[in-house]
């Protein structure tokens, strides 16, 4: 263990870094490239586990465990819950809608990455002290962290506690919906159903109509609309579109046109008859 935390890294750590580092990068790329949010979440969880291993490798034993328990275990599960709420199967289109956004993102990303790498490469980071002495001073990594948290960083620690409780309350407030009336029991619901006028389900809207929109009442055999076929809320708001009048008018117009056509043809025939009779004279 001490060897891992020492300034010189072992060959084993190097192998571990290259293998798991590759996995982490692939995981990260998959996170941003997967179509479905569930897959992204799983890939991110994988990356986080790899990072936990790296924490351990760097001598941060406490953080490594916390990473697995809190991050991978709790936060990622929270993500999955939300994904489930929103819709697991909903796949995102990866087609970009904002003009030039992808090019800008790629440009910025590349530039930013290159600059970061350049900065790191430029910095003189040759010396590696290792955590051995620091961990040993307090009798171990966890004890060392605890000592710092409860002495030097105690106020920050208390503040993060307050932040957490605030966030919890905030989440509750954001997602809470106040009930405006007492929830009906199953018994009450069934009784309501039986006592109502319509025992069978209400007729579907749009029957015999040329539309099947929900706000268009179905037509009864005599051509009049039946308001029962429309949702109770729409009925209450008076938002029923009555197309029966239009349909009737259309029909009437059609009849009129055909009559006119027939009549005109009849007139024309009459005229022709007259011409014929005149010729005959």
């Amino acid at each position: 263990m001490n060897a891992l935390a020492a300034s010189a890294t072992s060959t084993g750590e190097a192998v571990q870094f290259w293998v798991l580092g590759t996995v982490a990068v692939i995981g990260a790329l998959c996170t941003i490239l997967m179509k479905k949010a569930v897959h992204s979440a799983l890939c991110l969880a994988g990356t986080m586990i790899v990072l936990a291993v790296f924490y351990l490798a760097n001598g941060a034993y406490f953080l490594g465990v916390v990473q697995i328990v809190v991050y991978t275990g709790a936060i990622m599960m929270l993500f999955l819950f939300v994904v489930m709420l929103v819709g697991v199967t909903a796949a995102d289109s990866l087609k970009e809608t904002l003009k030039g956004q992808r090019w800008l993102a790629a440009g910025c990303g590349l530039g930013f990455g290159i600059l970061l790498m350049a900065g790191i490469g430029q910095a003189s980071l040759s010396t590696f002290n290792g955590l051995g002495r620091a961990n040993a001073a307090a009798g171990g990594n966890v004890e060392g962290l605890a000592e710092l948290i409860f002495t030097k960083y105690v106020f920050a620690f208390e503040l993060t506690g307050a932040l957490l409780i605030t966030a919890t309350v905030g989440a509750m407030v954001l997602t809470h919906r106040e009930r405006t009336e007492r929830a009906k029991t199953q018994r009450e619901l069934s009784q309501e159903r039986v006592r109502g006028k319509h025992l069978p389900p209400l007729p579907a809207p749009g029957v015999y109509a040329r539309h099947n929109a929900v706000d268009i009442a179905g037509l009864l055999p005599d051509g009049t609309p039946s308001e029962l076929t429309v949702n109770k809320t729409l009925r209450g708001r008076g938002q029923i579109r009555d197309v029966s009048g239009g349909a009737m008018a259309d029909l009437k117009a059609l009849e009129q046109r055909s009559e006119e056509r027939l009549g005109r043809e009849a007139g024309r025939e009459n005229g022709r008859d007259q011409d014929a009779s005149e010729v005959a004279k």
């Binding site: 904002l98 956004q101 800008l104 993102a105 910025c108 930013f112 600059l115 350049a118 900065g119 430029q122």
Partner: peptide
């Protein structure tokens, strides 16, 4: 000002990159 958070994010990100570049340049 197209209202898309992602466009604003690009601006922020680009701005950060420029800041880093400037810092590095000044150090260099």
């Amino acid at each position: 000002q197209n209202g898309y958070a992602r466009s604003y994010a690009v601006s922020m990100f680009g701005g950060t990159a420029i800041l880093i570049a400037a810092t590095l340049l000044m150090r260099a």
